[in-house]
């Protein structure tokens, strides 16, 4: 099996996630793009675990850990997004600027 194909797929998937995080405005879509990036990392971990025939199976076990971490991250992230939505009636990350320097553009309550 050629190693290049899976790692290139992972790199392309990661770049798609980078684009999504930078370009999307809706906070839930940003979370989805973060999931894409985590999945690209997972593919890399599995491929290199298989390549080196790791006796401790570190790559696959770390993949499981990353999956669990992603689940926790999505749970907490959605709780935060819902809290913001309840307070501000928007999940648009471009309009949540109250922590920025230009205070007058921020969405006030």
């Amino acid at each position: 099996m050629h190693l290049v194909y899976p790692v290139v797929i992972a790199a392309l998937l990661f770049s798609a996630g980078v684009y999504g995080v930078l370009a999307r405005r809706n906070a839930i879509l940003v979370l989805m793009s973060v999931e894409l990036m985590l999945n690209a990392v997972n593919l890399n971990l599995v491929v290199f675990d298989m390549r080196w025939a790791d006796r401790l199976h570190g790559g696959q076990v770390l993949t499981l850990f990353v999956i669990v971490l992603a689940a926790a991250e999505v749970g907490l992230g959605l709780a935060l997004v819902l809290l913001i939505y309840r307070n501000r009636q928007t999940v648009d990350v471009d309009r949540l600027r109250t922590l920025g320097e230009h205070e007058e553009e921020g969405v006030r309550q």
Partner: peptide, 12 residues
């Protein structure tokens, strides 16, 4: 991989 990356691009 084509399916994965293509649908990932569709997601974003």
């Amino acid at each position: 991989g084509v399916v994965t990356v293509g649908s990932g691009v569709m997601v974003v």
